[in-house]
Measured scan of single mutants.
Amino acid sequence: MLEGKVKWFNSEKGFGFIEVEGQDDVFVHFSAIQGEGFKTLEEGQAVSAEIVEGNRGPQAANVTKEA
């Protein structure tokens, strides 16, 4: 698991990027966000996630919002 913060997230398109210190930004799709209801993230929000290899490079999986 790694910790980072949301760089930006487009709720209409359902994707965005997470900033991780010392690494390239990581793509995040709404389907990777854990929880019930409408899955979205806010800019600057702290999150933790796993990194997996997607079709277009590294992407976030099992994204959870930090308190």
Rank of each mutant, 00 (worst) to 15 (best):
T64Q: 13
E66N: 14
K5P: 00
G57W: 06
G14R: 00
G54N: 06
S11L: 08
D24I: 12
K5G: 00
E53R: 13
E19V: 10
V26S: 01
T40N: 07
S48N: 10
V47K: 02
E53G: 09
E12S: 13
P58Y: 09
A46N: 12
V6I: 08
G16H: 01
T64V: 15
W8V: 00
D25H: 06
G37S: 06
F9P: 03
E53H: 14
A61Q: 10
Q23F: 15
A49V: 15
A49E: 01
F30Y: 12
G16Q: 00
I33P: 05
I18Q: 00
L2I: 15
S11C: 14
L2F: 14
F27D: 06
E42F: 14
S48T: 14
E42I: 14
G54W: 05
V28M: 04
E42C: 15
K39Q: 09
A61H: 11
F27E: 06
G35Y: 07
E3A: 13
D24Q: 13
E12F: 11
E19K: 11
V63S: 03
N10F: 05
G22E: 05
L2P: 04
S11H: 13
G44D: 04
V47I: 08
K39D: 04
G22P: 01
N62L: 10
E43L: 13
G54A: 06
S48C: 15
F38Q: 06
T40R: 06
G54C: 10
K7H: 05
E19R: 11
V28W: 02
G54D: 04
I18M: 04
L2H: 10
N10G: 03
V47Y: 00
E66Y: 14
H29Q: 02
K5N: 06
A67R: 12
F15V: 06
V63W: 00
D24L: 12
E12R: 12
E3V: 15
K39E: 04
V47M: 02
F27H: 02
F30R: 09
M1H: 12
G44L: 04
K7F: 01
N10P: 03
E66T: 15
F17A: 02
G57Y: 04
S11V: 12
A61L: 11
G16S: 00
H29M: 03
G57N: 04
F38S: 06
Q59H: 09
S48L: 14
K39F: 06
G16L: 04
E21P: 13
H29P: 00
E43Q: 15
G16P: 00
N55F: 14
G14N: 00
T64P: 02
D24F: 11
V28F: 13
F38N: 05
K7E: 01
I51Q: 04
I18D: 00
G57H: 05
R56N: 10
E36D: 12
R56G: 09
V47S: 02
V63K: 01
I51V: 11
G44C: 09
E50L: 13
A67Y: 12
E12V: 13
M1F: 13
F38V: 06
A67L: 12
V63D: 02
S31D: 08
G4M: 06
D25T: 06
G54S: 10
G57V: 04
D25R: 04
I33F: 02
G35E: 09
E42D: 09
G22M: 05
G54V: 05
E43W: 12
K65V: 14
D24C: 14
Q34L: 14
E50I: 15
Q23H: 14
F15I: 08
T40H: 08
E53P: 12
F17N: 00
I51T: 04
F38Y: 12
A32I: 03
A49D: 02
E42R: 14
D24N: 12
I33T: 04
N55W: 14
V28A: 02
N10M: 03
W8S: 00
E36A: 11
Q59P: 04
Q34A: 12
E43N: 12
W8E: 01
Q34G: 08
G14T: 02
E12Q: 13
P58G: 05
A67M: 12
F9V: 04
V52G: 06
V28Y: 04
Q34H: 10
S11E: 09
S11P: 13
F15Y: 14
F15L: 05
A32G: 10
V20M: 09
E21M: 11
F9Y: 09
A46F: 14
E53W: 15
G57C: 07
A49R: 02
L41E: 01
G44V: 04
K7P: 02
A46P: 11
F9N: 03
G35N: 07
G44F: 05
I51P: 03
I51W: 06
N55Y: 14
V20I: 14
G4C: 07
F38M: 06
L41Y: 01
E36V: 11
K39M: 07
A67E: 12
E53V: 14
G35C: 13
G22L: 04
I18N: 01
G14F: 03
E66A: 14
F27Q: 00
V26A: 03
A67H: 11
I33E: 06
V26T: 02
V47H: 03
K39Y: 04
S48G: 07
A61D: 07
I33L: 07
S48Y: 14
E53Y: 14
I33G: 04
A32T: 07
S48W: 15
N62V: 11
F9L: 03
G4L: 05
N55L: 14
F38C: 11
S31F: 06
N55G: 11
E66R: 15
R56Y: 13
Q59T: 08
G37N: 05
V26W: 05
I18V: 05
V47P: 01
I18Y: 02
K5E: 03
K7I: 07
S31V: 05
Q34V: 14
E50K: 12
E21I: 11
G22K: 03
G4W: 04
E50F: 11
F9R: 00
L2W: 10
V6L: 02
Q59M: 11
V63R: 01
S31M: 06
N62G: 05
V26G: 00
E36T: 12
V6F: 00
D25E: 04
A60S: 03
D24M: 12
A67Q: 13
T40I: 09
V52M: 09
E12W: 11
A60R: 01
G57M: 04
K13G: 06
G16V: 04
E19P: 01
G57Q: 04
G54R: 07
F9S: 01
E66H: 15
I18A: 01
I18T: 00
N55S: 14
T64W: 13
E19M: 13
V6Q: 00
T40S: 10
L2C: 10
K39R: 11
E3S: 14
I18E: 00
Q23S: 11
N62I: 10
A32Y: 06
F30A: 09
F17K: 04
E50Y: 11
E21C: 14
P58E: 04
A49M: 15
S11Y: 11
E66I: 15
I51F: 06
L41V: 03
P58C: 09
L41M: 05
E12H: 12
K13H: 10
E19F: 10
S48D: 04
E36Q: 10
G35T: 09
H29E: 06
G54K: 06
E66Q: 15
Q59K: 09
T40E: 07
